[in-house]
Amino acid sequence: MNLYRKIYLDVIEEIRSGNLKIGDKLPTEKAMSEKYKVSRITTKKALDLLAQEKIIERFQGKGSFVSSGHIKNQESKKEASVKALPHLSGLVGLIIPDFSDVFGLKQVKMIEEKCSEYNYHLVIKRTLGYAEEEKKAINSLVDKGLDGLIIIPAHGTHYNHDLLRLVVDKYPLVLLDRYIKGIPASSVHINNQKATIMAIKYLLEKGHRELAFISPPKEGASSIEEREIGFHIAFSDQNLPVNNNYFLLDIQSSIPKNFSSDNVKEIAENDRRKIEEFLKKNPEITAIFCTDYTIANMVYSVLESLGKKIPEEYAIVCFDSVSTTNGNPLFTHISQREDKMGEEAVHLLMKQVNGEYDPKHVEVDFDFIIGETT
């Protein structure tokens, strides 16, 4: 049973049994939170629902008091629990920059499916990668009294305050696909270092030594930071030097907020010029590791425009990919198990909803799939 439902039904039972009478003052939100070992947000949700149904009245600065005889029409705690009152149906929020066939769609479907199995409805908010939209989504969903949130944080570090507030309040929360440094929240993600090491080791075993690393700015994104670290570790494991000139770390086109930008074409053209200049400046490069599919697709297009052959002259490896018309993946890539990530996120969230607040970091396995670019 959801914890706010338990508080709600316990108060009703206390009134029905006569332990609480009309006009009696209820314990404070703080006291109830300590009694049930839940966040103030959860307690407030239960009390707000009781007030909405006129079972109690709440007065600013004074507290909550048992109201008039409306309780006579309420079912007992046991009856209400068995019937699972419609107005107490569970709600879970998913805050996500965006999703597509390349990455995210399978994840969303699995989250919805698993929420349904727990008898929860899913509310989805897309932020398009904007910090302000993420902040609005968090505040909006929390204010609506949702039982918990699954969040794929937008790119960057400047929204930590809102997430940290939820963690401090012990609000049920799971970060998906990445974590944010300094915020002790549960998270579900793959081992990005391990995945990148596997990909780079594969390229090194194929004889490539001049490898490039292309990504968007890190800006606190744990997944990109770990992929860059994995790149360095792979070379170190083989006692090979890394050429720092082979890093291009400011591609903007794959940042979600730029997908809907008014100057999206200008951003893409600027990135294409960066990639073309980068490759011309470093003609020794024979293999390119891209941190996402959008960048890999752009690199592929730039190489084609330069008359280069793939994979004969250049190999490309990335995270995630789509299939070509013959059903095979275009890019050799690390395939994140989106459905498993979504499933684990819901399981972690449900544990928190039921009072387990110990932050856990779950690593989901991945697959390395050979495509046409190597």
Rank of each mutant, 00 (worst) to 15 (best):
P256M: 07
A131N: 06
K35A: 14
L9D: 15
E356D: 15
D147T: 04
K340W: 05
Q336F: 01
Y120K: 12
E228F: 12
K181R: 11
K170M: 11
Y171T: 13
E134Y: 05
K21S: 14
N328W: 03
G129E: 11
L94I: 10
E226P: 00
I334Y: 03
K351Y: 03
I288R: 03
K218H: 06
P153N: 12
L303S: 05
Q60I: 15
V92K: 00
G182H: 01
S68A: 08
R16K: 15
G327R: 05
M110L: 11
A234H: 01
G207H: 06
H70T: 13
F65L: 06
I150G: 02
A131W: 02
N139Q: 15
T325D: 11
Q107N: 10
D367Q: 08
D177C: 06
N245D: 10
T373D: 04
K351R: 15
I71V: 13
H347T: 01
E53L: 04
K194Q: 09
N191L: 07
I15C: 07
E34G: 05
E210Y: 06
K218Y: 10
E13C: 07
Q336D: 04
A131R: 01
P153R: 12
L149G: 01
D147V: 05
E14Q: 13
D143P: 04
N263S: 08
G90M: 07
S33Y: 03
I96L: 13
N258I: 09
E133N: 13
Y130A: 00
C290M: 01
V364Y: 03
E269F: 08
D169T: 10
K83Y: 06
F278Y: 05
V11N: 11
V123C: 11
K308D: 07
V92T: 02
N297E: 05
H158C: 00
N282Q: 04
Q252S: 11
G145E: 08
K45C: 10
T28A: 10
I316D: 05
M1K: 05
T324K: 07
R272W: 00
I124V: 14
T325K: 10
I229H: 05
K170S: 15
S100D: 12
E112M: 12
M298L: 14
A154I: 15
D169M: 08
S89L: 02
S253G: 00
D10H: 12
K37F: 06
D143A: 15
S67G: 03
N119V: 08
I200A: 05
Y118D: 09
